[in-house]
Design a binder for these strands. Structure first.
Length: 631
DNA sequence: AGCTAAAATGTTTTT
DNA sequence: CATTTTAGCT
């Protein structure tokens, strides 16, 4: 009966269960409903829940979809991100590549630290090299397959980095995609196993998949061809992360028997907003034509405002928010301020704070990237794996025990030479069976090793919550934090929150091991943490707004060199991506859309004259109205 | 080894 | 300008 609410195209997408299917789903075309109901329908036709695999862009989207399916059918289907899928596959099969099952996942900070110890005198090139390695991995190139053209000894550095990761029994984010592909390619039996395990795949946001994700999917569906991909080429905004828009554009060539369905009715926005967005995106030349339409009525025109500076811009937006909230009763959490760069959030925070408007910033520094959280997690990681050099380096001198760079280097070399994992090597040094270090250092190291041993003991005997607490207590971490009285309270609160999260997770998870907990935390994105349940205005980058919708949307900072960003200058391709980004921002709006720019803006430490974004000129006056300074 | 102060460096977007 | 890295001093 739920199927009656669907339009004919949506219904066809839901009912097509066999063979490859491409759903070109324009903004607001009811994509989520179609995807969810298609899975529900698959279950109804007799596909077992464990044979279905849904892949989404964020954990949050995955969780929501899983929940909806469960509500409708009382069955649980695996829906996760590509990176979680990779982690899951590696957890089962990584031994085929010579790693141990207790591997840890390095985030960018960890990876950078590792790379830095390898680079030594060349650390000026760190970013360049890190990006090159990431690009190579996303393109599925191994170290012996890359050339040294751009960076001296690149192949060697890449190889060393990969070897060092393995030495630490760690994988980086890109490995979560690359290594599963290697397993499938190098081990036919495993390929066969996974192909039979997941017979029906469904992929959301297909326009933002990269080469390794594309290959992973193609390997998995090679046998059954039951693949449904959903996406919108006009919303492809992650090419800088290796996403290849061609993956969706060439789908019908990859699968000639594919059915293609276009969802072009928009159920979200009124026509002024929608047509202005259509107009804007039509300035892009390299795209698949489509015509989104809506029958929700004309609605309000887009309101344009040019402020003197970023403070006035924030004041204007705060005023409009007040108006919508107080006069029209729009809940605060149904309004959003979008900006191009995270740094732009400052003036809004200042303004909202002084006006006492509750707000919520999505993105920026994640809870799990805070120093105190990473410190404690590093202790836990070392207790878990024993090989994690980066976790060792981070924790060995917390609290201060007199370890400096030189000593840590010595221990690292000892570990490499003896081929002992870093923790066993420390034990050997304490026992006197490895390199000789001063008595003072040996005693300090002994203290450290026994702390890790304590955590390990609690880990074996007690709950996860107790393990986290033991990591905080055995290390004397709180007194270490007290050294900085300024930040102590806040950091302590964060640690309490970590304990609470551990306790909560432990209850809601079937097999709550420390390893699984650490894995989940490393895959958590800033987006996944945000809760929209309290009534607060949402502040976020346009990138973070993908997939969301709001009654009232503000797109701020529409100025040349900011949006579009200066880095896109001169590249038609990059400029088109900026335009798609602007399109994504605009199409989030249901009822009201405001677009603002400023004449003056503090940027890179100085005040600069700003010119209005070319995107503003690309909107026809039919759909816009100027708001003057007489609010 | 560890602190403080000066200097450099960099700001797009993030799983 | 704001944060991070380095140098120089103890």
């Amino acid at each position: 009966m739920y199927k009656m609410k669907l339009n004919p195209e949506q219904l066809e997408a839901v009912m097509t269960v066999d063979g490859p299917l491409l759903v070109l789903a324009g903004a607001g075309s009811g994509k989520t409903r179609v995807v969810t109901q298609r899975i529900v329908h698959l279950l109804e036709t007799g596909v077992a829940p464990y044979q279905i695999l849904g892949l989404t862009f964020t954990n949050k989207a995955a969780g929501e979809m899983q929940e909806r399916i469960q509500k409708a059918t009382e069955q649980r289907v695996l829906v996760c991100t590509f990176h979680s899928l990779g982690a899951r596959m590696l957890r089962e099969s990584i031994e085929a590549l010579g790693y141990s099952r207790s591997f840890v996942i390095y985030d960018q900070e960890d990876s950078d630290k590792l790379l830095r110890t390898l680079l030594k005198e060349r650390k000026g090139e760190l970013k360049e090299i890190r990006n090159a390695i990431s690009k190579a991995k996303n393109g599925l190139q191994l170290s012996h397959e890359v050339s040294d053209q751009e960076i001296d000894d690149f192949s060697k550095i890449y190889g060393n980095y990969q070897a060092a990761l393995k030495e630490c029994n760690a994988v980086d984010f890109d490995d979560l995609l690359l290594l599963p592909v290697r397993i499938l390619r190098e081990h036919p039996a495993m390929l066969n196993y996974y192909q039979e395990r997941w017979t029906h795949l469904l992929i959301d946001e297909y326009q933002d998949t990269n080469e390794s994700q594309y290959t992973l999917v193609n390997l998995l569906v090679e046998k059954h061809h039951n693949l449904c991909v959903v996406g919108d080429p006009d919303q492809s905004i992650y090419s800088w992360r290796g996403a290849n828009i061609q993956n969706i554009l060439r789908f019908d060539r990859d699968y000639p028997e594919a059915k293609v369905i276009r969802l072009e009715q928009n159920y979200r926005s009124h026509t002024h907003i929608l047509e202005a967005a259509n107009e804007l995106i039509s300035f892009n030349s390299d795209r698949m034509e489509k015509s989104l339409w809506s029958d929700l009525g004309e609605g309000a025109k887009i309101r344009r405002f040019t402020a003197l500076d970023e403070r006035e811009e924030a004041r204007f937006i705060a005023k409009q928010i007040r108006k919508h909230h107080d006069d029209y009763g729009t809940p605060l959490n149904d309004m959003v301020v979008f900006y191009r760069t995270n740094a732009q959030s400052r003036p809004f925070e200042d303004q909202f704070l002084s006006q006492q408007l509750p707000y919520n910033i999505v993105g920026g520094i994640s809870f799990y990237q805070r120093r105190e959280i990473k410190d404690i997690l590093a202790f836990l990681r070392l207790a878990h794996s024993g090989s994690d050099f980066i976790a060792f380096e981070r924790t060995v001198n917390i609290p201060k025990r007199g370890f400096g760079d030189a000593t840590i280097e010595k221990i690292r070399f000892a570990s490499l030479e003896s081929r002992l994992p870093i923790l066993s090597c420390c034990q050997a040094i304490v026992d006197g069976t490895s390199v000789k270090l001063t008595l003072k250092i040996r005693e300090a190291l002994g203290q450290y090793v026994s702390i890790i041993a304590t955590i390990r003991r609690v880990m074996g005997e007690s709950s996860l919550k107790e393990t986290v607490i033991s990591a905080i207590e055995a290390t004397g971490y709180l007194s270490y934090l007290k050294e900085d009285r300024e930040s102590f309270e806040e950091r302590k609160e964060n640690l309490d929150e970590l304990i609470a999260k551990a306790a909560e997770w432990e209850i809601s998870t079937p097999d709550p091991t420390l390893g699984a907990f650490l894995e989940e935390l490393s895959l958590k994105s800033t987006l996944d943490e945000s809760t929209n349940d309290r009534d607060r205005i949402q502040l976020m980058t346009v990138h973070n707004g993908k997939g969301l919708e709001f009654a009232v949307v503000f797109v701020a900072g529409l100025e040349e060199d900011l949006f579009p960003h200066a880095n896109a200058r001169g590249s038609e391709e990059a400029l088109e991506e900026e335009r798609r980004l602007c399109y994504v921002g605009m199409t989030r709006a249901k009822l009201h859309l405001y677009m603002t720019d400023t004449r003056l803006r503090y940027l890179w430490g100085m005040q600069r004259d700003q010119r209005p974004s070319r995107f503003l000129r690309e909107l026809s006056p039919d759909h816009t109205e100027k708001v003057l300074r007489i609010w």
